[in-house]
């Protein structure tokens, strides 16, 4: 059974003219346990909305999202929050670290809404991403690459079955991007988590065996300019 199984997923927003602006229309998508899949998506392809639907941040208008056998589409918001806290890790392009919290506290927060704070595991994760000497540094005291690594450790903090990564290297330079991607993939593998990564960077996409084009997957996506 796939870890993630999506069918007939639709999400629309109200358009200024009063009509519906369909952003996501995905007939079918599957992701196996511990698989690592990249989705290539340009701006306007609906990739963030698609990931937010899988994460339960947004509720679909119609369709089904089954994660680890659990149907998310019919769940109430608080139940989806619970699923996200226990099953999903999320890496953002802008890292989205909490600026008032140290690296260690950011990772501990990633745990505390789910399985509960485990200081030793949080330290081990930060050590794994090479930040064991920066545990008590605030995000502003870290380089961009180091902030991304904190975000990776935080995404794995709740021992997720699925890690979602939205343009995780978009804010990094070439060298940092390559190292960061390697780290994300290795860390997911070591922790038994599947990885669903969205990017428009050809070099990033080139690292993956399985790449799907979001504008083909999502019928509502704007078609790329050729």
């Amino acid at each position: 059974m796939p870890l993630l199984e999506i069918s007939n997923l639709k999400k629309a927003y109200a358009a200024p003219d009063g009509g519906a602006n369909v952003v996501v229309d995905v007939p079918e998508f599957k992701l196996d346990t511990q698989a690592q899949v990249a989705l290539s998506g340009e701006s306007g392809s609906g990739k963030t909305t698609f990931l937010n639907l899988i994460a339960g941040i947004l509720a679909p208008d119609t369709g089904s999202i089954k994660l680890n056998g659990l149907e998310l589409a019919g769940l109430r918001e608080s139940a989806r929050d619970r699923v996200r806290a226990t099953t999903i890790g999320y890496i953002f392009q802008t890292f989205n670290l909490l600026q008032g919290y140290t690296a260690l506290e950011n990772v501990l927060l990633g745990m505390s809404f789910g399985p509960g704070a485990d200081r030793e595991f949080a330290k081990a994760l930060l050590k794994r991403v090479g930040l064991d000497a920066k545990l008590n540094h605030l995000p502003r005291q870290l380089s961009t690459g180091q902030q991304q690594r904190v975000a990776v450790a935080r995404a794995l903090a709740n021992r997720p079955k699925l890690v979602l990564a939205d343009e995780p290297t978009g804010n990094l330079d070439h060298t940092n991007a390559r190292e960061s991607l390697k780290l994300i993939r290795e860390a997911c593998r070591e922790n038994g988590a599947a990885l669903l990564l969205v990017s428009h960077d050809r070099e990033v996409l080139g690292q993956f065996d399985a790449v799907q084009e979001l504008h083909k997957l999502n019928r509502a996506a704007e078609q790329p300019v050729s």
């Binding site: 929050d81 999320y90 953002f92 600026q99 008032g100 990633g110 809404f113 935080r154």
Partner: peptide, 16 residues
Amino acid sequence: RRDIAILRALGARAHT
């Protein structure tokens, strides 16, 4: 708002 959104994305429930 951004901090609240991040907390929510980490799994914090709205009533939390």
